[in-house]
Amino acid sequence: MQRTARPFKSRARFGPRSSAQWFALPAVLLLGLFLLYPFVDVLRFSTWDWSGLSAPRPIGLENYRQILQDPDFYKSLRTTLIFSLITLPPFILLSVLLALALDGQPYERGIKALLFLPGLVTLGGAAVAWYTLFSPEYGALAAVVPVPRWDQSVGWALVLIMLFTLWRHIGYGVLVVSARLKAIPKALTEAAAVDGANPLQTFRFITLPLLRPALTFLVVIGTVLTLQSYTAVFLLTRGGPFGGTEVLGYYLYKTGFEIGRLGYAAALTVVILILTLAFALAQARLLREER
């Protein structure tokens, strides 16, 4: 009796989903190698009394207890929060105003490219250029107009760092707001105009509520960036004058590499990471509520 040939059935153990997971494995391994392993090492270092030159001495959670009692830590945290408060409102306001002014204009793409260009310049080169331009003594701008002595005034030093930060990131903010503006249906604004709403009313009751997710995103991302600010302070003011611009990032650097308390600096790194993650979780929650 002749048997009918059965169709071949693959008995492969790995389906498409398993294959995709195997393809993702190299990226996961690299992520663990360059992120997870250093973080575990930082946690280990944070339990040491270690200068980097002498033998480490385990002290448990003593570094964290000292952080809670460290007035310099709270001073740098307060400076960081002040820097956030004077930087975020202009950043959000300018991003919205510029995006609205450029929306639909024939030169929109060119202006956006120019605004985004500072973010592509290396941070070190940009900071050196700003210092050369705004130096009160020999800066190029000082030869034309009087430049405030920001090297002797905490307020003017914070203003300088704020302007530098805005110059670096305003292009990103404009792109985020502009992308959200493009997603607003024109039919809504046209219907509001037909109903007799003026441009200000249209912006207040239609455009602004629909821009809220983009504004929430910029607020939280900007806050996280200010918590991690370091390079601009290091290159422009070195934490001065009188320690008035010593943000958390610079205090971490000074503690670890100038004072030589690497174990304490590792504990500061963990604390700053926890603060940053708290804001990141707040970002995820706010964005989820806006959907």
Rank of each mutant, 00 (worst) to 15 (best):
G260H: 14
A282W: 07
A266K: 09
T276M: 05
G260S: 10
F257P: 03
V270L: 05
L252V: 11
L262P: 02
A282F: 09
A282Q: 03
L262K: 14
T269M: 04
A282V: 15
G263A: 14
A280F: 15
L273V: 04
I274R: 11
T255V: 15
L281M: 08
V270W: 08
A265F: 15
L277E: 02
L277D: 02
L252C: 13
I274V: 14
A266V: 12
T276P: 05
L281Y: 06
F257Y: 05
L281Q: 02
L268A: 04
I272K: 03
T269F: 08
A267Y: 10
T269C: 06
T269S: 14
F279S: 01
I272M: 11
L252R: 01
L281V: 05
L273W: 07
T255R: 05
A267P: 00
V271N: 01
Y253N: 05
I274L: 11
F257H: 04
K254R: 13
L262Y: 14
A267T: 01
I274W: 06
F257A: 08
F257M: 11
L275E: 02
L277A: 06
L273R: 02
A282L: 15
Y264N: 13
A282I: 14
T276E: 00
T276S: 08
T269A: 12
I272W: 03
A278G: 14
A282M: 10
A267N: 03
T269P: 00
Y264K: 15
G263I: 15
F257C: 12
A265H: 09
L252T: 09
L277C: 03
A267G: 01
G263D: 00
I259S: 14
A265V: 08
E258C: 06
A278F: 09
L273Y: 12
A266P: 14
G260W: 11
L273S: 08
A278T: 13
L277S: 06
V271R: 03
A278M: 04
T255Y: 03
Y264Q: 04
G256F: 15
K254P: 08
V270N: 06
E258I: 11
I259Y: 13
A266L: 09
F279L: 10
L252S: 08
E258V: 11
E258K: 02
A280H: 00
L275Q: 06
T269R: 06
A282G: 06
T276A: 11
R261Q: 08
G256Q: 06
Y253C: 10
I274C: 09
I259Q: 13
G260F: 09
T276K: 01
L275R: 11
F279E: 01
I272L: 12
Y264W: 13
L277M: 03
L268T: 04
L262E: 00
F279A: 02
I259L: 15
A280K: 00
T255I: 15
V270I: 10
A266W: 09
Y253E: 04
G256I: 15
Y264G: 09
V270S: 10
L277P: 05
L252W: 08
T276F: 04
A282E: 07
L273T: 05
L268I: 15
Y264T: 07
A280L: 10
G260C: 05
